[in-house]
Design a protein around this nucleic acid. Structure first.
Lengths: 235, 235, 235, 235
DNA sequence: CATGAATGAGTTTTCATTCAT
DNA sequence: AATGAATGAAAACTCATTCAT
């Protein structure tokens, strides 16, 4: 049904504004419906801009997706770059980072969606991005410094790989949000209630600090452990 | 990407086999391309079955997706139901469960994909499933029993919520796999190498047991912690 | 979605019964949805008979339609053949025929539907019927005899063509029913209420008898009448 | 019945013309084949317009059907609105209206087809039309005024309901055309020959004026009339 | 007689993209 | 810079009909 006349008047000639509007609409559309289901018609409708402009500014639907993806990652690493925890106690610094992440995921569901989507597509587009090198999360370096401080003061265990540690911390923070819907459906909980999010935050902090403060080798090893089904891992 | 006239001979009349073939092809197609991008033409071609049969057996593309989703979850909970760790030491039992999960994710990338996809779509289809009640992971109960054993023997801390704990364990296990591509691209690592997977496995076990074995309140609290930006959580 | 197992057990071998069931279902389906929209699947479902049987007994969907059409017309002319009005006064005989028709249309909406449908399709199938000759309505002859009686007694006008008269009588009776939905929508009336049908019945009788009882030429002629736009009729 | 690649050159950009072409083709296709059998492919081919344009302008096949239906009705009531019979003698005015109708049906078989089709579908689409209120035929008011004039001059009977009368007049006019094919097949006549149409016209005028000019109660009542099978009408 | 499974052609509809202004 | 109109390919889905048992 011939899309009803937009209410808005034809665009003033304003390249930056138009571009920005399209990008914002793309962020919404892609994170709601995913790359293949997103429609250029809908994106144009969402922002009251002529569909042709998408091609003018972004070349193609995929070009627009890439731009949206990059913008999402840029904002994210920009925030991580801003954090200043060097003046805090090591444990407090770790907590601050966990807070940062959790707050970010709560407030930026777009990021969570794009990250999941992009992983579903095997990071096909992310890898194509010329800005990929900019997305190396700055936190790993911050973490490295904090770990060092905590280790030299004896608060933290010694054998921690920063990247591996970062992944663990991240996993504890993000999976709750990225998988909120299946968890919610299966456990019949509203994962996004304030109380549940706070509980999550405390659990994450507890997990991470427990790990860091555990004296190396102090924990009871599981006796007779063998590297389960190692064969399968070769593939 | 062209299709057209299958060369294969007409199907033998065998309802179960045909249904199963379609389902398997759907598993592959959906987990590779996602629900909207998956094509019924391709699914039919993949399994050499007339496209019409998809509608005969599953009613619609979405019906087929739901059937595939359910089959993926059924297999998963079936495995979790089989596990027998009651005879193991609590710590060893926990390790065994982590092994089970990690091995499963390594060997069943379909599951990881479907889970991510379904969450992307806000569990829209999962919630529609009449089998949803069957997907309540049996592990939470196993975990509850093991925790109790570990707690009464004094090995484990007291204040552990089984569901919350399950989510954490799960997060540590699965996020590495579900996000392997973005992590791999950003950190320039092959997350699926045997060595990396083994390292991951050890880290997860370490995280989880550290948490469980930490004496309650023993870890240094981050001084002056306040419930960061609680306001934002109200929404 | 693979049509759910019929509740009924597989058919007993009973040719006539099966044929009749299919025919009845076809009557319903065709008169509800029309020939092109009717589906053999639905017809089979409606009567709990295997779809293949439609082809066994009727050859094709169109063959079934023709059989349904013929059955509808056969029942109709059978009724008209039964009527006995020879013993009634001419006017009463006319009234009896109008009653017969109106009652029939009220009670057999299938007939009204099939007649409209078949006319929409330019009587394509009716003309193909080998039974067409049987459908020459017997009423025209009954009418001819009654008119003669009424004319010789001086009650009825002389210049009446039986077929033309039959068409008029029929029009007054059936159009109210065949067009009930557009009339109902436009005039916001429930054409099928008992009161409205009765009013219709009286009006029809009034129209028909007024016409028949009018002395030839008695009515005021419209002065200066010319055969409006005759040219257009050539086409 | 094959289509495929139009040979025609791409359309000039002219929204109104394209829309109009599609609508005209739809009028033809729908009135020839009916809503379900009509094909958007054929409609596009008929008017040399890209099939996609049907959806661009009308949203769906059903949207196009509704637009066609509305256009058919609009033209019809527009004509009825134009008629000016106030200056004619009452009887002549009635004749003029009958002429108008019959001429219209002869020249606009589309209207007859759409009306029959829409009634077959229980006025489903007509009722959905936002323009339904515009289709209340203006003739009923014209008729009311003429009847009043004829009644006060003593030419016409007193007890005439305008809507009921309109339906009768309409029935006498249209049924001959809407049912021309079954009547033609059964009576072996060419209903559309000029002579037959003229005879019809005279009969209709005769019927209608006889009814109107009949002195109330003057006609011989059928003795012992009882409201035949009234019970059946309750339902 | 009766049936469930299978087929291929055809249908509406959607979509990213480009044209002409 | 911006726009409404136009396009062709491909998508999901439907259907009458036939096969094999």
């Amino acid at each position: 049904m011939k899309r009803r006349k937009r209410a808005t008047a034809p665009q003033k000639r304003n390249a930056d504004a138009t571009r920005a509007k399209i990008l914002q609409a793309a962020l919404d559309e892609f994170s709601e419906r995913g790359l293949p289901a997103a429609s250029t018609d809908d994106i144009a409708d969402r922002c009251g801009v002529n569909k042709r402009m998408i091609y003018y500014y972004f070349g193609s639907k995929e070009g627009l997706y890439l731009a949206a993806l990059e913008s999402v990652f840029e904002r994210f690493v920009a925030l991580e770059r801003e954090i200043d925890v060097e003046h805090l106690e090591p444990a407090a610094a770790i907590e601050a980072m966990i807070d940062l992440k959790i707050d970010y995921y709560v407030e930026n569901p777009h990021f969570v969606s794009f990250l999941a989507m992009e992983n579903f597509y095997k990071a096909r587009h992310l890898r194509k991005s010329k800005k990929l090198h900019m997305f190396k999360t700055p936190l790993t370096e911050v973490i490295a410094r904090i770990l060092k401080r905590g280790q030299s003061s004896g608060q933290f265990r010694q054998d921690v790989d920063p990247v591996d540690f970062y992944v663990s911390m991240c996993a504890l923070c993000i999976m709750y949000f990225s998988n909120q819907h299946s968890l919610g459906a299966i456990f019949q909980r509203d994962m996004m209630s304030g109380a549940n999010i706070e509980r999550r935050r405390r659990t994450v902090v507890d997990f991470v600090l427990s790990y860091l403060q555990m004296t190396d080798g102090a924990r009871t090893p599981a006796p007779g452990r063998k590297p389960a089904r190692q064969a399968a891992l070769v593939s």
